[in-house]
Design a protein around this nucleic acid. Structure first.
Lengths: 138, 138
DNA sequence: TTTGGTGCAAACTCTTTGCAGGGTC
DNA sequence: GACCCTGCAAAGAGTTTGCACCAAA
């Protein structure tokens, strides 16, 4: 995703454009490994060594409130982030902290169909995500 | 679950029985709110004020290795634990940190059926869990 | 010019670790 | 009695906060 496209993402939502925000979004869009804040900081610092750790945390929180970024549910050692907001699921390695996307339109359709008839009386569903745990085969 | 039953759970797996381990298991079995370590410590201290925080962490790690307890995937602020190991899914509140069980045999059957035909070539599935995010209706 | 974003460093929270003493089998 | 589990306190990792300075609109 080009710099101009990233700027558009921010502008279209009426968010202020700063080099730091561009750098954070760029780093998130350019990886699919659902980085922790630390990992993300490493990626950002390759091109922008002067962006502060605290700023990155603040920007991530801000993007989460803006709906641009989501936290990935994980075992909890540290937070993981994802800027790919289209509907998808995740594969979780039982050997390490690897998390990969799993896209499956047919599965989405089945789930949607199922929860249309089987609603949960005390709960309004907004999003459904599969956590598929297992081992990556090399 | 009675004290004797908890002792049996440990003995059947050949694990050493201590008052601290009993207290941790008892607290986990007696709640369905998927407590954090801090919350769990509160529960334990109601009856056993002298069990140390560090001990509880060590016992939780030990139980996870033994397969008696699982970590619940969450947004990552802190770790959450669950000793109910039968197959089930979770409802996640978007308003707060509430996590509730969701049992659904029909859904399990559908998922099992689906992934029998649709296998993922580079991944061996060991467990599938739905994360259903939304709002609890009071 | 005004508003609010950034950098820095300190504070905070949650979790892990090391070691001496004590309990379980 | 041997082993390893526990309590305590300190260290560590990850995240948040406060404030002065600076930049975007």
């Amino acid at each position: 995703m080009s710099n101009n496209e990233i700027v558009s993402v921010l502008k279209n939502r009426g968010l202020k454009v700063t080099p730091q925000r561009i750098a954070v979004l760029d780093a998130l869009y350019s990886t699919n490994e659902h980085p922790s804040a630390e990992k993300l900081t490493d990626i950002i610092h390759r091109n922008n060594p002067n962006i502060a750790r605290g700023t990155i945390y603040k920007i991530l929180d801000f993007f989460i409130e803006s709906g641009l970024v989501k936290r990935v549910h994980s075992a909890g050692d540290r937070m993981r982030y994802d800027a790919h907001t289209e509907r998808h699921h995740h594969l979780y390695s039982l050997d390490n902290d690897r998390i990969e996307d799993y896209h499956d339109e047919e599965l989405n359709a089945i789930l949607e169909e199922y929860f249309k008839k089987r609603s949960i009386p005390y709960f309004r569903i907004e999003d459904i995500q599969l956590h598929i745990k297992g081992k990556f085969i090399e």
